[in-house]
Amino acid sequence: MIIVDQLGIAKDALHVYVGLTLFLTSAALLRWPLSSWRPWLVALAGALAGEAWDLRDSLVYDSPIRLAANLKDVINTIIWPTVLMLLARHTAMLRRH
């Protein structure tokens, strides 16, 4: 929440940024093609780790667990990595020439 407050962005937007950052950074650093499952899995792992942390906080601070909100966060995190991966796989748009 500190990052959301400091940057002045919505929490949902932060999920999108994190997903894209994990996807693109892992692909670039490890020289994986965007069409590969590997950078997508990095983004998914980041999304699931973040939601595990949120669930842990809910238990520690005795706040309600909202699984629908957790699912929405995972989807927000991986939606654009999924779109980019599919575009790289099925179109010429993201292929190297």
Rank of each mutant, 00 (worst) to 15 (best):
M1R: 11
I2A: 15
I2W: 05
I3F: 09
V4E: 11
V4S: 09
V4P: 14
D5F: 13
Q6I: 15
Q6S: 10
L7I: 14
L7D: 09
G8A: 07
I9A: 08
K11P: 10
D12M: 04
D12I: 05
L14F: 04
L14S: 05
L14P: 00
V16N: 03
Y17F: 15
V18P: 02
V18T: 07
V18K: 07
G19Y: 08
L20S: 06
T21F: 11
T21K: 05
T21W: 14
T21S: 13
L22F: 09
F23E: 00
F23S: 02
L24A: 10
L24M: 06
L24S: 09
T25R: 12
S26M: 05
S26C: 13
A27S: 13
A28S: 10
L29C: 13
L29P: 12
L30Q: 10
L30D: 04
R31F: 13
R31I: 04
W32G: 05
W32K: 09
W32L: 12
W32D: 06
P33T: 00
P33G: 03
P33E: 03
P33C: 01
S35M: 09
R38P: 03
P39I: 02
W40D: 00
L41E: 10
V42M: 12
V42F: 11
A43I: 07
A43P: 09
L44W: 01
L44C: 01
L44S: 01
A45H: 06
A45N: 01
G46Y: 02
L48M: 11
L48H: 02
A49L: 15
A49I: 11
A49T: 15
G50V: 00
A52M: 05
W53K: 11
W53P: 04
W53I: 15
D54H: 15
L55Q: 01
L55N: 00
L55P: 01
R56V: 13
R56S: 09
D57V: 11
D57P: 03
D57N: 10
S58C: 15
S58E: 09
V60D: 11
Y61P: 05
Y61C: 13
Y61E: 14
Y61V: 11
D62C: 08
D62K: 15
D62P: 07
D62M: 07
D62E: 12
D62Y: 08
S63F: 06
P64V: 15
P64T: 14
P64Q: 13
P64H: 14
I65T: 13
I65Q: 06
I65C: 04
R66P: 12
R66H: 07
R66S: 07
L67N: 05
N70I: 04
N70D: 10
N70S: 12
L71T: 13
D73M: 04
I75W: 03
I75P: 01
N76I: 05
N76V: 05
T77F: 00
I78F: 00
I79E: 02
I79F: 12
I79Y: 04
I79G: 03
W80Q: 03
W80G: 04
P81D: 11
P81W: 01
T82Y: 03
T82G: 04
L84R: 02
M85E: 00
M85H: 01
M85I: 01
M85D: 03
L87H: 06
L87R: 08
L87A: 04
R89F: 06
H90F: 14
T91R: 02
A92T: 09
A92K: 11
M93L: 15
M93E: 14
M93T: 11
L94P: 03
L94I: 05
R95Y: 09
R96M: 10
H97N: 13
